[in-house]
Design a protein around this nucleic acid. Sequence first.
DNA 1: TCAAAAGTGTTTTATATACACCCATGT
DNA 2: ACATGGGTGTATATAAAACACTTTTGA
Lengths: 230, 230
Amino acid sequence: MPYTYEFPRPCLTVDCVVFGLDEQEKLKVMLIKRNLPPYKGEWALPGGFVRMSESLEAAARRELQEETGIENLFLEQLYTFGEVDRDPRDRVVTVAYYALVNLWEHRIYATTDASDAAWFPVSEMPPLAFDHSKIVQMALARLKGKVRYEPIGFELLPKKFTLSQLQKLYETILEKKLDKRNFRKKILSMNLLIKLNEVQTNVAHRAARLYQFDEQKYLQLKEKGFNFEI
Amino acid sequence: MPYTYEFPRPCLTVDCVVFGLDEQEKLKVMLIKRNLPPYKGEWALPGGFVRMSESLEAAARRELQEETGIENLFLEQLYTFGEVDRDPRDRVVTVAYYALVNLWEHRIYATTDASDAAWFPVSEMPPLAFDHSKIVQMALARLKGKVRYEPIGFELLPKKFTLSQLQKLYETILEKKLDKRNFRKKILSMNLLIKLNEVQTNVAHRAARLYQFDEQKYLQLKEKGFNFEI
DNA sequence: TCAAAAGTGTTTTATATACACCCATGT
DNA sequence: ACATGGGTGTATATAAAACACTTTTGA
């Protein structure tokens, strides 16, 4: 660099709120047990320092890859937290992201960076390090708001899913019951679901039809001013 | 500090997209002509470096105060821009905010920090320094989205306004014509406007009734689950 | 044959849209 | 008296909400 600016600089990190759905379609968040101070031994969001040679989103993806092994997941910037005392050691500003991961088709592992990783239901979160509880709260609010007018819920389901799975996903995130017939009427009327010639397997009752989200069609319709809405 | 983290640190700045409405209810953005390199002599968003002792929002408010003299305005975080090469001199991450200012009741001045400040209609923006054009585009999109489901438009109007002014504000921001009777029906049915016993002055036609936004009532209703929507 | 979830329409209610004329005021 | 924007109501169309029974399948 030919020149640098003469100002004191805060540390800059990224933190990720990774959401996943378990088999019972409970919404969970991935946490990491810290093996370094501060807050050693406490649960925290996966994240780390931004390197000088990578963008913020690249830093978030790298940390997720390192700590969980997940690549190519839905990732979106949430908010930047910059209270002066949010880290007891130094001034640290963190750019928070939230991610959605399909737990049916991907496995998550804990790596050397982190002593332990685990999934916690959003209703049973342990106390978190730093201001991470606040970050999770904001991510939940964002997810709840966004899932209604962008088709991001599909990121949490397997590629092929049943309408009941999809409905339960919305019920979980929106925290309210939906009417089965009205839900199906609405989602099918958008013509964004491809009805497959396949059904569920290994269920102890009538097997449900499988569907797939038609992303191509959604992108086309969006161009023409279509708005997804549940 | 007893300890600091050993990582290279990007510079951290804040930038503000300040929106105002002129007398014709045209939407404008405040720009500053840079008197220091890089991009010396070019137009840019007001902003500057975050100090170690202040939060991000405090930094944004301080810069606005210094560069425009405005205090107590609506200010909300927009997005954080962290591409590696967005500043030619050094790695600079910027937290962008957008602000809404009532130009009817406040004056804006340019100060010593900035050689010049001016308002530009959003449809006639000059080329901007750094990635500031992108930031303005995102702020416009945010404003357009948010004005429909949060009562933030009032921030751009004088405390006492006419329904026609309010309607024109929405037409300007949403970039589409609205039906007068339907608009009035909808906005009045929310019972969030206080009908004053006053009318416009100095107009060459029938003077319109003045209204005032009832923020107290809005906050109460919001608690109970009410959603503002235009 | 029983349990468990899949699948399917119609009626009612609420909300959004379309639409045109008279009124009050200042020049 | 005229130009300018202020102010008002109804009918239609569309979308949301409420609501219950039959079907299929595996255990």
